[in-house]
């Protein structure tokens, strides 16, 4: 037990037992699969047509917005170039599905149907999102499935910022699927009910800018040093079945010990950037006197 808690030596044992457990999980998930398949196969023509129309409209709206987004993205890169700050690497994604399997009821965990056999570049600590917002990150990668921790687990903390003004904070899970708490915000912090909290990207585990939660309750007690701020996750933690695994650094895997460092090619890019910064700084120092 100590080995498992402190080190990663027993992970191979865990993976080999997981291979035994996977058929059971598949079996438990099977009725849900059949249900999905049946509801897909037996929908009436009318529903399909209605779906088609709404999807078409939605698609039109989204593509129109995307036209502007391309322009804004280009502008953003240009401005960042002008500021000489680091470029944001494009994110790679992979669609996965949750298995409807119950685990420890007192941990906010889920099992997904992607494992190290078919997708060898998923990694422990990888974030995943659904269509609405951030859901959590992977904790154990096993051959045919993986387990993931949701952002609402009491042991999970997510670096966030208020979208309105960039105020940075940490969102901790509470164990309830509809609440996150934001501790250590002073009583006079600029945060309001209804504020959207997005990931700040600090800590380098989660990519920057994904919506995470909406503030629903603020209790200010003057006798306490910090305000009590509660937020509701925007991701549909208890309903989503299709999720997206995200690679924040493009192709490279982050270093497990320090996610801000990449393990492969991107590392050199980062160091060259740091070197160029170092080069720039002495120049400024020379100019100053």
């Amino acid at each position: 037990m100590t080995l498992d808690h402190r080190t990663t030596h027993v992970n191979t044992l865990r993976s080999s037992i997981a291979v035994l457990v996977y058929p059971l999980q598949y079996l438990v998930n099977f009725p849900a699969n059949v249900g999905d398949w049946a509801s897909d196969s037996f929908t009436s023509r009318k529903t399909l047509r209605e779906d088609n129309t709404t999807l078409r409209t939605q698609n039109l709206i989204l593509t129109t917005q995307l036209q502007k987004l391309n322009f804004i993205e280009a502008e953003n890169i240009h401005l960042r170039n002008l500021l000489e700050s680091s470029k944001r690497v494009g994110e790679r994604i992979l669609i996965a599905e949750l298995l409807s399997v119950d685990m420890d009821p007192y941990k906010q965990q889920v099992t997904i149907n992607k494992g190290s056999v078919a997708n060898d570049d998923i990694y422990s600590g990888q974030p995943f999102v659904d269509a609405k917002g951030v859901m959590g990150k992977l904790v154990h990668i096993e051959p045919f499935s993986s387990t993931a921790l949701l952002i609402t687990d009491p042991g999970h903390a997510l670096p966030i910022q208020v979208n309105r003004n960039g105020l940075r904070a940490i969102a901790k899970g509470t164990g309830s699927q509809t609440r996150l708490e934001i501790p250590h915000l002073p009583n006079n912090a600029d945060i309001k009910v209804g504020d959207l909290l997005v990931t700040s990207g600090l800590g380098c585990v989660f990519p920057v800018g994904y919506p995470a939660a909406i503030v629903v309750e603020i209790n200010i007690d003057p006798s306490l040093p910090f305000a009590e701020v509660l937020a509701e996750p925007v991701a549909e933690l208890d309903r989503s079945r299709d999720i997206l695994l995200v690679w924040p650094g493009g192709k490279a895997k982050p270093n497990p010990a320090n996610p801000c460092q990449m393990e492969s090619s991107l590392k050199s890019e980062n160091t060259t950037q740091i070197e160029s910064l170092k080069k720039n700084n002495p120049a400024k120092e020379k100019k100053a006197p």
């Binding site: 037990m1 865990r14 037992i17 420890d104």
Partner: peptide, 17 residues
């Protein structure tokens, strides 16, 4: 117990013990 540990993603050895 080991199998329970893996299926509930608990600490390996907790249910085994």
């Amino acid at each position: 117990g080991l199998v329970v540990d893996v299926s509930t993603d608990a600490l390996l050895g907790q249910h085994a013990l």
